[in-house]
Structure formats: structure tokens, C-alpha cells
Computed example of a mutant assay.
Amino acid sequence: MGNVGLGRQRSAVEERLTRPQRLVRQLSDLDSGRLRRLIRSGHLAPCFDADDDERAVECPICFYFYPILNQSKCCGKGICTECFLQLMPSKASKAVHCPFCKTATYAVEYRGARTSSEKKLQPEEEQTVNEAKMRMHSKTRSASELILLPYKHC
């Protein structure tokens, strides 16, 4: 009984995939134990080897191909774990904005491997999000133009 079957599905992750392999800069405050726990619990994608498989997806930051990427919580864009680690602030710096949509608080989630039908839907979903952003931007611009109209006294 209990909560059997609830929560994230855990799968065995090779130890080498819990350690960054291609960091551009050294992260002095990287907590490797915490990183290992986040990867093993399914909260972050493993630090996969670069892949040249045609089904692999490209990280838009480092341009390497991976079997699966983390997803930005704000806009759903993919990013590999190592690029995410390099974007995250050190303890001494301030919060990071999303590198894709500039949302003030950047966070990612690992959703696991996508099915082929989910991969086919991604371009449509991105188009829908972009259209909504453009509509919001045009409404905001129209409202600001209305405020700036000269006021005529009677």
C-alpha cells in the first residue's frame, strides 16, 4: 500500500554521467554531491556524452547533440545540464534571467525521454508560444501608445 508508483520514475544512471565532462569554465562552488543526487533523482538530465544520432537534440548554447535535454520552466526551451550549470549563479552573484525568453527567475526541469509524437508536436508548441508573445507585445505597445497620446483640454 502507500504511495507506490507516485513521483518521478527513477532509473539507474551511470556514475560517469553524474559528473560534468565539457565545462567551459571551472565552477569553484559546484556541489558535486548535490549534482549527483539531482541527476539520480531525475530532477536534472544526466551529463550525457555528445551524440551524433539523428534523433538527438541540439543544445542551443553549446551546440552539442544529446539524447534528451532539460527544459526551461518558463519557455520550454531545451538546455544541457552542463550549460545550465554554467549559467546558474555562484553563491556571490545574483539570480539569472532565462537565456531564451529573459524571464527573471530561471529554472529547468528534466522530463525524461520524449516520445516521437511529443517530438513532432514541439515545433507547433513553439509557434503557439511565439504567437502568444507577439500578441501580448502588440497589446502592451498599443496600451503604451494610448497613454502617450496628447491630452486636449476643452
Rank of each mutant, 00 (worst) to 15 (best):
C59A: 09
I79S: 02
V57F: 15
F65P: 01
N130A: 12
S41C: 10
K120S: 07
E124G: 03
C59I: 02
S116F: 12
R55E: 12
L69G: 01
H97G: 05
T105S: 12
V4R: 07
S138V: 03
E54I: 03
N130M: 12
K94H: 08
F84H: 11
L30A: 09
V4P: 02
G112I: 14
L38W: 00
L44F: 02
R40M: 06
S32R: 13
K73W: 00
Q122D: 13
D29Y: 10
R19N: 00
N130D: 01
P46T: 15
E126Q: 08
A92P: 03
P67Q: 13
P123C: 09
N70Q: 02
K91C: 03
E14L: 11
S93H: 01
V108Q: 03
S116Y: 10
G78V: 03
E54Y: 11
C80Y: 13
M134W: 06
Q21Y: 10
Q122I: 02
C154S: 15
R36A: 05
R111V: 06
F65D: 01
L38C: 05
T18H: 01
G2M: 08
E125W: 04
S72I: 00
A45I: 13
E125M: 09
T115R: 06
P89M: 05
Y151S: 02
I39C: 05
C98F: 10
K139T: 00
E54H: 08
N70L: 03
R10Q: 05
I147G: 07
P123V: 09
H43Y: 11
I79E: 00
D31Q: 09
E118N: 06
E14S: 10
L44Y: 05
K77E: 12
Y106F: 15
M134E: 08
R22G: 07
I79D: 00
A113L: 07
C47E: 04
S117K: 12
T140M: 14
S32I: 11
S116M: 12
D53I: 04
L121I: 03
A143L: 07
Y151F: 11
C101H: 06
C75Q: 04
C62R: 10
N70H: 02
T105F: 15
Q86W: 14
L6K: 07
C83E: 09
K91N: 00
G76I: 11
D31V: 14
T18V: 02
P67V: 15
K94W: 05
S116G: 05
R19L: 14
E145S: 01
G112T: 09
N130C: 07
R19P: 02
D51S: 15
E131H: 06
I68Q: 13
P123E: 10
Y64L: 10
E14R: 14
